[in-house]
Design a protein around this nucleic acid. Structure first.
Lengths: 286, 286
DNA sequence: ATCACTTACGGGTGACGTAAAAATC
DNA sequence: GATTTTTACGTCACCCGTAAGTGAT
């Protein structure tokens, strides 16, 4: 029987080259590793190491052992995280989104539908969300592109339209609509956690600079005391109202409008059937 | 970090149902297992068991953990046996054969070609030999059918012809050839380790009985003092000569003649190139 | 009463750390 | 002399076994 700590130490040695480096990573002393590696060698009964000068290196067999060690450690990690995630998914819905907008409205709806479950949310990139969903990290994710993956089921769950917030004194403040190119070059005040919108505005207005503020209320104060343009969306305007001293003008570009897809793993679609039906009704009444 | 002994005990529990049964298999006491399972549960942080009456059973999470445990233990075993087999294969050639004939001639030839290597032999079924070869248990195997597997290279390495040994007083002792059907129903003295020949004679002479003798010299004595028919082959006759008081008559059936294929894994064909060239020369001069 | 598991306690293996030596650069 | 590994020794964690206890059949 080869214990896991031996494989862990072998793996660390393979990755860091020397006993000292590996032992520092594992927070054990170097003699301890020296002993452990000898023990591993004796257990297998085949030499795994070579002494090259004052360095201990893996030989052909050691490298094979290290590959197995890596794989075994990986499956051990996977086992633990898989079980924990599964257990948690019985108690909570972790909802990941690529934009903050859906996270302002959907969690409370989820809560009312599933009162026994805890609803948590995270803001991540679409790529992170997709891998996280398949790895059972997320129970649901909100994307702006409908995923092609056959193991994922997607339902439309709303849309969002980007607005430009301008002080009333701004020359364009009276317009009914505005384009990114008209505003390109102006400096904006912006919340720092806006998900994919960050990418959108930087791409559409490459000559603009964006002053980020993490705290929403601080941002709000800054905006009202500043003459810099800001952002809003139909969702934020609906939920938080319009500032009296600002004009909010929709961007006319198609890049300023997005649809959101609420996705879950195929095998959980039935579990969330009521939820997707609620989204359906909500879309029809909107 | 989940140590291997915990996974081993979980696996045993999953396979045997109760702590007591599992602990007996592992040769540890039952309280020790009880503690270990609780420790595993605490480490993962998710309940893995249910108390059904006075029995401890795996719940949904426990069953998942047990699956992982099984896989991890398997790869750990594979790691050790793979490394040991690889190391051994550097020092020895383990030659498996489905018949004893080739093992009477080939090992000494191998020895003279590879004087630094230890040559060991085993008699097994073709099926066992094929899996053993792919799992690096054998470096070479001798089969009577050319294998189809693309990862295996086969070279002809000789043939063998079955003879019938008869006392000179036997009515058929003067014949030049003999068929299985002529002998069907007679009882034979036979060596017990004859590989696939066992199958051949039992199939071809279903009404005969075969008295097995494990020790070759004992068999030889029995044969010379008995009037029962016996077996020989061209190989045994060449190597050990003919008994003066017996006639050795070839069986005429095609089932009495076989070709032998010497096989190695594809990736080792170059390593044994000299050997296969020797077999080639030997076949041509024969 | 029997069976399966849990709790309690003591013992011994062995994994770790510290200190110092050996070997290579 | 600096770096890396090995050796030596003491300590403590923890895994196991024994024995008694609890609960279900």
């Amino acid at each position: 029987m080869i214990e896991m700590y031996l494989l862990e130490q072998l793996d660390a040695l393979a990755q860091h080259g020397t006993l000292i480096a590996a032992s520092e990573i594992l927070h054990i002393t170097q003699p301890s590793m020296s002993r452990a590696m000898r023990k591993l060698e004796e257990t297998i009964g085949v030499p795994l190491f070579e002494h090259k000068g004052n360095r201990l290196t893996l030989n052909e067999y050691g490298r094979i052992a290290a590959e197995y060690a890596r794989r075994i450690l990986d499956s051990q990690d996977e086992m633990v995280s898989r079980i924990r995630a599964l257990e948690r998914s019985k108690r909570t819905i972790l909802l990941g989104s690529c934009a903050p907008g859906p996270l302002m409205e959907l969690p409370s709806l989820l809560s009312s539908l599933y009162p026994d479950l805890t609803i948590s949310t995270e803001l991540r990139t679409e790529e992170e969300l997709l891998t996280g969903l398949s790895e059972h990290v997320y129970q649901m994710i909100i994307l702006i592109h409908k995923p092609e993956n056959a193991n994922i089921r997607a339902h439309l769950c709303g849309e969002e339209h980007l607005f430009c917030g301008l002080p009333l004194s701004h020359p364009l403040a009276k317009k009914k609509a505005i384009s990114f190119s008209e505003m390109d070059g102006e400096n904006f005040l912006m919340a720092s956690e806006v998900g994919f919108w960050d990418q959108v505005v930087r791409t559409q207005m490459p000559h603009s600079r964006f002053l980020l503020q993490n705290d929403p209320s601080a941002l709000s104060e800054l905006v009202s005391s500043s003459s810099l343009p800001s952002f809003a969306t139909d969702i934020t305007l609906r939920l938080y109202g319009r500032m009296a001293d600002r004009a909010f003008i929709p961007f006319s570009d198609t890049a300023a409008i997005t649809q959101y897809w609420c996705c879950c793993r195929k095998e959980e679609e039935l579990k969330y059937l009521a939820w997707f039906q609620l989204l359906e009704r909500r879309a029809n009444t909107a």
